[in-house]
Design a protein around this nucleic acid. Structure first.
Lengths: 332, 332
DNA sequence: CTGAAAGCGCTAACAC
DNA sequence: GTGTTAGCGCTTTCAG
C-alpha cells in the first residue's frame, strides 16, 4: 500500500502538500504537477479509512430499505445511487427485511463507520432514529414518514388510493375490495383510507361499515400475503367484482390468483397503487397509479447531500403524487 | 463520540483492556463486567474506522453487480447478505450498470476502504481485477467466469440453453429462435451454444447455419432490447414458432411483445433461461429453467468468508445447474 | 505557499 | 492477565 509519504518523497515535497493536492487547497502549479506525476507512477490511491478517522466523516451514505427484492425499492435505490455517485459518494444498500432489529444494527454501523448520512424507508412506526440523530448526522425519510422532525419524501398515498378506486368506479365496478399492506404502516393505512373515501363519495352500497370490513384485507407488502388475501376475498359468499391492490407486489399476487381462477382482468377489475413490475400482462387491462420511485430516490439524495453540505434550514417534506394510468379495456 | 479511553477511565482499567474485551481475548471476569457496564452506561460503540485503519481490514464486503434492477441479481444479493450478516459482515451493494469504468471505481473504493473482499458479477470480459487482486484481497466471481485464477460460482449455462430448447422441441415446436444477451458476455454465448446444439441434435431444419443466423438475436439483458429483437423475429418472412429467452428480463420483453400481438404462449412456444419475475401469467404456459440465484449468492459468500479467514487452497469453481420447470400446456 | 508535528480511535507488541 | 506505548495514513493547525 503506497502512502502519502511515498508520494511526497518521490515528488520532493512534504506529505502535507500531497494532501493539499488531493483536497484542492492552493498549491503551486509545479508542485501540483510533480505530485500528480509521482502519484500516478506509484499508483497511489488515498486511504479513505485514514481520512475518515481524521475528518470524522466519509463519503458514504447508507440507504436502508425494507425489501431489497421489491423493484419499487431498487428503482428508488437507482435514483439515490445516481445522484450520490455523481457527487462522489458511494451508497451502502442495507436491507432491513422489515425488521426493526436489523434496521437498528445497520443504523449502528452507519454511526460506527462514520457515514455521512442515511436515507431510510423505515420498517415500521417503531423505528428509532434517536441514536443516529443524536450524532448530528442528517437523515432523510423516504416513502414512509417518521415521527421525527427530519426531511422526508413521501407519496400522496391517500390520493393514490382514491385515484385507483375511482378508476374502478368509473369503469362500472361496484363491489370493490382492497388488499393493503400491514395496518401499522402508515402508507398502507393512508391508501386504504383513500379507498374508503372514494367508495363513500360514490355512495356505493359497499361503503357501509359492515361491507367495508368484509372487503378489506391487510396482508404483507409481498406476493404471498396478497395471494392468500385474494383467495379469501373470492371465497366470500358475495365476492367483490374488483380489487384495489395496495402496492406493486400485492397487485402481482392478486392477479396471479385471479388468472389461476380464469378471472383475468377486466373480468374482475384491478387497480394497483404502484406499477406492475416486469408484467407480461396486456398493459391495457389494469389501472396503475404509478409511483415515482426513482424520482423519490433522486430527491431524497439531493436533500441529504444538501444537509451534509451544512444546510440548516427547517425540515422539509416533499410530497410526490402518483400518476394514474387508466385501464383502457372496460368491464366485460 | 465516546472512546475506548472514556470507557477505560470509567471502568478503572487501561484502554488495552477495553479493546481486549471487545475483541474476545482473555480478560478476568470482573474486568469484563466492569468494562461492559461502563460501555453500556456511556453508550459506547467501537469506532470501526479507527479499527480498520489499525488492522488494515474491515468487516465489509463489496458485492458488484451489473444491474441492481434485475431481480436475478437482487435475489443473489439476498443470499450474500444473509450469510454475510450472519458472520458479522455488512455488504456494500455496488451497481456497475454494466459499465467497466463504474466497476473500476467501485473496485478502487473497495481497496481504499479496506474492505475484506469482493464478490463480483463482471460487467464484461474486459473487467480488470488486477488492482484488487494485487492487494491480496480475496475476490469471488459469481454468475460470470473471469480470466483470473479465482474462486467462482457459475451456472451450467450451456446445459440450461439445451434444456430450454429441448423442452420446446418436445412440445412440438420446430422453428425455434433465440434471443440472448450481448455476444461478448460468456453466459450469453454459452446459452446460445446450448440452443444451437439442441437444435442440431434434433436434426431440425432450423439448425442449418443460414437459419441459425436468421433466428438468433443478441440483445441487452434487459426488457427493451428483448422487445426489439422479438419484433424483428416476428416480422421475418418466415417467423419462428417458438423462442428461447436468454435471461429473465428477455423473457419478459419477448412475452410482452407476443401478448401485444395476441400470440400468448403456448400459441408461440416460450422457454426462459431464468425465472419470470413477478409474473402474472399462468405459470403453466412457459418453460423456465430456474436459476438458483440465492443459492449462488450464499455459496459465493461462504467461499469469500473462507478466504478472508485465511483459507489458501487452490481456486475452486462451483457450477450450479438450473432446474427445468416444463410448461404444462402443450402447443395449441 | 509550504513544512513540521500533533493527533483521529484503535490494536498489538512488548514488558511486567 | 494487564498496562504502556507506538503507530495505521491522513488532515490540519501553526509557523515560517
Amino acid at each position: 500500500m503506497t502512502t502519502i509519504y511515498d508520494v511526497a518523497e518521490r515528488a520532493g515535497v512534504s506529505p502535507a502538500t500531497v494532501s493539499r493536492v488531493f483536497n484542492g487547497t492552493s498549491v503551486s502549479a509545479e508542485k501540483v504537477a510533480a505530485v500528480r506525476k509521482a502519484a500516478a507512477e506509484l499508483n497511489f490511491t488515498p486511504n479513505r479509512t485514514a481520512r475518515s478517522l481524521r475528518t470524522q466523516s466519509s463519503e458514504v451514505i447508507a440507504l436502508v430499505i425494507p425489501d431489497i427484492e421489491n423493484p419499487y425499492f431498487t428503482e428508488m435505490a437507482r435514483g439515490v445511487e445516481d445522484v450520490a455517485s455523481e457527487a462522489g459518494y458511494s451508497v451502502v444498500l442495507c436491507n432491513s427485511d422489515s425488521q426493526t432489529e436489523k434496521e437498528a444494527t445497520y443504523l449502528q454501523i452507519a454511526i460506527a463507520e462514520h457515514m455521512s448520512g442515511v436515507i431510510i424507508a423505515t420498517a415500521s412506526e417503531a423505528t428509532s432514529l434517536d441514536a443516529i440523530l443524536s450524532t448530528g448526522r442528517p437523515v432523510v425519510a423516504v416513502d414512509r414518514a417518521t415521527r421525527y422532525d427530519i426531511d422526508g419524501v413521501v407519496i400522496a398515498n391517500r390520493a393514490a388510493g382514491v385515484a385507483a378506486t375511482e378508476s374502478l368506479i368509473e369503469a362500472g365496478y361496484r363491489r370493490i375490495a382492497y388488499i393493503g399492506g400491514p395496518e401499522d404502516i402508515d402508507t398502507a393505512a393512508d391508501r386504504a383510507a383513500g379507498w374508503r373515501s372514494a367508495l363513500a363519495a360514490a355512495e356505493l352500497p359497499a361503503a357501509s361499515p359492515a361491507e367495508l370490513g368484509a372487503l378489506q384485507r391487510f396482508a404483507t407488502f409481498r406476493v404471498d400475503g396478497a395471494r392468500a388475501a385474494m383467495e379469501e376475498l373470492l371465497d366470500l359468499p358475495e365476492p367483490p367484482d374488483a380489487v384495489v391492490a395496495g402496492n406493486n407486489l400485492i397487485g402481482v399476487g392478486a392477479i396471479q390468483v385471479l388468472t389461476e381462477r380464469g378471472l383475468t382482468p377486466p373480468q374482475i377489475g384491478v387497480a394497483v397503487v404502484g406499477s406492475l413490475p416486469f408484467t407480461t400482462l396486456s398493459p391495457t387491462a389494469v389501472t396503475m397509479v404509478r409511483l415515482p420511485a426513482r424520482h423519490m430516490g433522486v430527491t431524497a439524495a439531493r436533500m441529504l447531500l444538501e444537509r451534509i453540505g451544512g444546510d440548516a434550514q427547517p425540515a422539509r417534506t416533499v410530497v410526490l403524487r402518483g400518476e394514474v394510468q387508466h385501464a383502457r379495456a372496460v368491464r366485460a
